[in-house]
């Protein structure tokens, strides 16, 4: 899938940023996205589950505006680890589907990139729920 779609492209041409800087930006950007989420919870009083929904939608909007790919190149895991990235891969898939096959292509494209994570989430979730019991 990819989280990786954003990692390629122009960034490679201009040369990857130094490893230290990548780590620094990953930490800062990932942290800032989560800090923004915390503000939504504490200041706007949006419940945690709703905040997760808002984050995915924010990722979709930023992708629509063409801003998320540059962020991914720049911040690496700082942009690919938060849930906003899920909005990115869904939108990215929809856009490439649109380009390939119009409206129907968009529908089949949406889950093309995100399918890996969804399938893994179902598998891991099922397995973990089978193996573990809630702590008492």
């Amino acid at each position: 899938m990819s989280f990786a779609e954003g990692g390629r492209g122009k960034g490679d041409r201009s040369g990857p940023p130094s490893r230290t800087m990548t780590y620094l930006w990953a930490f800062l950007v990932g942290g800032l996205i989560c800090a923004a989420g915390q503000l939504l919870i504490d200041v706007a009083h949006i419940p945690p589950a709703h905040t997760m929904v808002v984050m995915v939608c924010a990722g979709a909007v930023l992708t629509g505006l063409g801003l998320y790919e540059p962020l991914l190149r720049f911040a690496g895991a700082g942009a690919s680890v938060p849930l906003t990235n899920f909005g990115f891969v869904l939108t990215k898939g929809a856009l490439s589907g649109l380009a390939k096959g119009g409206w129907v292509g968009m529908l089949s494209g949406i889950l093309e990139l995100s399918g890996t994570v969804l399938a893994a989430a179902v598998l891991f979730g099922f397995a973990a729920a089978l193996v573990f019991r809630p702590r008492s």
Binding site: R19, T22, Y23, A26, F27, L28, V29, G30, G31, L32, I33, C34, A35, G37, Q38, L39, I41, D42, A75, G76, A77, G78, S80, V81, P82
Partner: peptide, 21 residues
């Protein structure tokens, strides 16, 4: 709260970056 969210979120992202590398 925001500082802790920043640290934990940033920390998990850092771990992610480490895994990517």
């Amino acid at each position: 709260n925001v500082c802790r969210a920043f640290l934990v979120g940033g920390g998990i992202s850092l771990l992610g970056q480490g895994l990517i590398t």
